[in-house]
Design a protein around this nucleic acid. Structure first.
Length: 850
DNA sequence: ATCCCGCTCGTTTTT
DNA sequence: CGAGCGGGAT
């Protein structure tokens, strides 16, 4: 996402724009001008147009540049017209950036790239064209998580399920997970479907889908899943798109989930020969998952269950699909991304050309070496060696502090120092593992008067006031949108509470009509108290009036009228709380943003997909964000606090995902380091507050995994220093036995203290200690295992395939949680009801049968 | 319908 | 330790 062109100080001569004159003309002779300044690998990635291509683009290697140049190349070679190129990204931001850059490259000629966008927006677009084939109307509403949860709550109530024990949120998560894996209600494995709500999970999913159709709505997952269903059930429609897209480009391929993968597979298939059953095109993967698959043990061989049914591609000419990604930056496994997709690309697309971009244009030598060395500890990767021609620069620093407060103080001081030295605060970022770490920095920066901005947080369209305003517009646009109606029926307060809404629901259900129509009917009766009846009638009249006005009034103006007449604006004007003013601003911003759209319908169609938090006027400030939201960004100075066991890597990830989780955390560390151009500064604190109580923490194992030649151990500048021992002490190796054990318990700490005392003499330089700790770590990991561990199998398997050695109801022991019994098995993940700790998900290698 | 108290539970986040 | 939620009281 970030490019060498932004780095004048890096001095990369061949990346200077062609300056005209003889040299430029000479270069032009070697090829089109847009190819100038590409290195040989980049150029190969741009020019290899035929057949499947995987571009493994390491951090800072010019990924976006390759993607956009490739599109320019396709167009200028006349290989396809703009509307024949499908180009997908994950975020709107990435799509926008690509459009922008293409525009710069081609000179405003991108108007006709209708198929450049996010997976979801393109999926939604296709779905609207064929809505009737998936039981929707083309103006269907896209629901967000809030709507989903509210709908599911209703379903849970109808089923008489205790939503305390089985929260709607959890079901929403499950359904989302199923959709991510491309599973329709009938395809959900019986065991999984049964695990929610006393066996009713699958049924609820099915009912939910039915309700969505009635509401003329789709959730985010549907934008892809329903698209897949559309293609599967209507081969002619699929063929139409297969024929249309001459070239497919995919950004951030390592982040694709199974549904996205299936969708790409369908589209990238050459038109099926007559008579070829569609099922041959659709990979079995999850649906056909065969846990006994002999393949499931090896990282690169196959998805478990991805068996011979996948053989179809070899019989068709290879499609021109180009996926760009970096397996070392895959950090979204927890929300359904399948690293396997990228690891198995060559297998999925036979004859694929794999091109590695390994020249980094971003970071200095020390930073790059540290990052490379760290990530080399991962097993499940395709392997790249980043190199730079830049200077070594400053070493990566590691600083210990007594506690998190001191950590914040130390970082604050260093930033002030940078500021004094003339660094721009926009080039300073603090990247944390978890957002709760941010507060301490905010406190500190407020005290110092250091300007900062928090990146991330709730999105614009997720804010209550925006969602309320949208709900009004949704009801105007689509009277059947019950979820929207319910949201605003008593906002602002109109005396229409639960009792009234319940009555409307009863009516609506009996007469099979939307809530709004039910309301219209109910006000004609005397079922409501006069007061409620009056205000409901008033509300209906208002909506009727607004709908009529819609015909004659611009949509932006209509929105203002609605917000005004409904009393919604007034509600916030009267609100005395601190954020009320900000909310009013947001409403204004919403109306302003509507101007870009032609009408209300168009606005609503895109709003839920496209609306980003707004950039805002950028004055110089330090950026504060999570490691996840830092992906794709770069800064001269990067501060990385909180490198402690339990926090980073996160204990929870380790508990739930085991080795695969550790590797994902390590990739996160790698992402963090590679954000830095000139300075990367790591920190760990000895004491940190966790859930309100202070705990002693241990430096992250990732610190041990850094090459000492590129790292400088410094002392905390503020306060008491770290343990008074002057730099790194023996506890650097303390993590050896911490993995999978409860190192936060007093007993463990006591044992640890003893151990340190007896081994105290060992504390020397970092080198050597690393390998030692690493091997002990591995030993520690498999401590509970019977026999050698199949690392690849576990890494890849995640939730599918690996056969667990445990059976339901087995009595087991876990180092941290004690005794319990197995209640669910999901590959190598077990759900265990612990006698003391309650129900937990753990990886099987952490428990032993007793 | 609203308010207040007490309980629970603590990553990461896009669309 | 504190935010957020749900239940019960008013």
């Amino acid at each position: 996402m970030t490019e060498p062109s932004k780095l004048p100080h890096r001095g990369v001569p061949e990346h200077q724009p062609a300056a005209g004159g003889i040299a430029a003309r000479a270069r032009a002779a070697a090829g089109p001008q847009y190819l100038n300044g590409l290195n040989p690998e980049q150029r190969e990635a741009v020019e290899t147009l035929d057949g499947p291509v995987l571009v493994l683009a390491g951090a800072g290697t010019g990924k976006t540049r390759v993607l956009t140049t490739r599109i320019a190349h396709i167009l200028s070679q006349g290989r396809a017209r703009p509307h024949e190129i499908l180009s997908v990204t994950f975020t709107n931001k990435a799509a926008r950036e690509m459009k922008l850059r293409l525009g710069q490259m081609l000179g405003q000629a991108v108007e006709g790239m209708p198929w450049l966008g996010t997976f979801h927006s393109i999926g939604g677009r296709i779905l609207r064209f064929h809505a009737e084939l998936v039981q929707l109307k083309s103006n269907f509403t896209v629901l967000d998580v809030d709507d989903q949860v509210r709908l599911l709550k209703q379903l849970l109530q109808a089923e008489n399920i205790d939503d305390k024990r089985w929260p709607a949120r959890m079901l929403a998560g499950l359904i989302d997970g199923w959709k991510n894996r491309g599973l329709t209600p009938s395809q959900v494995p019986a065991g999984e479907a049964a695990m929610f709500g006393n066996g009713k999970g699958g049924k609820l999913y099915a009912t939910y889908q039915e309700r969505l159709k009635i509401l003329n709505a789709a959730d985010f997952g549907d934008l892809l899943l329903e698209n897949i269903r559309l293609f599967r059930e209507n081969p002619d429609v699929l063929r139409q798109y297969q024929g249309r897209f001459k070239f497919i480009l995919v950004d951030e391929y390592q982040d694709t989930n199974v549904a996205q993968y299936l969708w790409l597979r369908l589209l990238s298939q050459a038109p099926a020969r007559p008579g070829l059953p569609l099922s041959a095109i659709i990979p079995g993967r999850i649906e056909d998952a065969n846990p006994e698959s002999p393949d499931s043990g090896s990282a690169l061989s196959a998805h478990p269950g991805m068996t011979e049914t996948t053989a179809a591609p070899s019989s068709s000419p290879p499609k021109n699909i180009c996926c760009v990604g970096d397996d070392d930056q895959s950090i979204y496994g927890w929300r359904g991304a399948e690293v396997d997709n990228i690891l198995r690309f060559e297998h999925d697309f036979p004859g694929a050309k794999v091109i590695r971009l390994e020249r980094n244009y971003r970071s200095t030598g020390h930073i790059l070496a540290a990052a490379s060395h760290l990530i080399a500890h991962n097993e499940g990767r395709l392997g790249k060696t980043l190199r730079t021609e830049d200077v070594d620069g400053e070493k990566v620093t590691v600083t210990g502090s007594w506690d998190s407060e001191e950590e914040a103080r130390a970082i604050g001081e260093e930033i002030e120092e940078l500021q004094r030295a003339g660094d721009n605060l926009n080039e300073v970022a603090i990247l944390v593992r978890a957002s709760f770490q941010m507060r301490e920095f905010e406190d500190r920066f407020v005290t110092l008067g250091l300007p900062y901005r928090v990146i991330g947080g709730p999105r614009f369209y997720e804010r209550a006031e925006i969602r309320d305003a949208l709900a009004y517009l949704r009801v105007i646009n689509s009277p059947a949108d019950d979820l929207a109606f319910e949201r605003i029926v008593n906002v602002p307060k109109r005396g229409l509470g639960d009792a009234t809404v319940q009555l409307l629901h009863d009516h609506a259900r009996k007469r099979r009509m939307p809530l709004f129509e039910a309301a219209r009917a109910v006000v004609e009766t005397d079922e409501l108290k006069p007061k409620a009846r009056g205000s409901l009638r008033e509300l209906i009249l208002q909506f009727d009036r607004w709908r009529a006005q819609r015909e004659v009034t611009a949509h932006t103006e209509l929105a203002e009228i609605v917000l005004d007449e409904s009393g919604y604006t007034e509600m916030w004007q009267k609100d005395r709380s601190a954020d009320a003013a900000g909310r009013l601003d947001n409403l204004k911003e919403l109306v302003r943003s509507m101007e870009e759209f032609e009408n209300l319908q168009g606005f609503l169609e895109h709003i839920s997909l496209v609306m980003d938090r707004d950039g805002g006027a950028e004055e110089e400030a330090v950026s504060l964000m999570t490691l996840h939201s830092a992906k794709g960004l770069e800064f001269d100075n990067v501060f990385l606090p909180g490198w402690e066991e339990g926090l980073f890597p996160s204990q929870r990830t380790l508990d739930e995902q085991g080795r695969a989780g550790l590797e994902e955390e390590r990739r996160l560390a790698h992402v963090g380091l590679t954000r830095a151009r000139r300075r990367a500064k790591l920190y760990f604190a000895t004491n940190r507050r966790i859930h309100g109580t202070w705990s002693t923490t241990i430096p992250s194992r990732f610190l041990d995994e850094l090459p000492s030649a590129n790292v400088e151990i410094t002392e905390s500048k503020g306060g008491s220093g770290w343990g008074g021992s002057g730099g790194y002490g023996p506890s650097r190796f303390d993590n050896v036995e911490s993995f999978g054990s409860s190192y936060t318990t007093p007993g463990w700490q006591r044992a640890q203290a003893n151990r340190n005392r007896s081994q105290g003499g060992r504390g020397g330089q970092a080198r050597g200690g690393f390998e030692e700790s690493q091997s002990s770590f591995s030993g520690g990991f498999s401590r509970n295992k019977r026999g050698p561990m199949v690392i690849e199998g576990e890494l890849v398997a995640k939730s599918t395939g690996t056969v667990s050695e445990f059976s339901l109801d087995d009595r087991v022991f876990h180092q941290k949680f004690g005794y319990g019994h197995v209640v669910k098995i999901d590959g190598n993940k077990l759900t265990i009801a612990f006698e003391k700790a309650g129900e937990k998900k753990v990886v099987d290698s952490f428990v032993e049968r007793v």
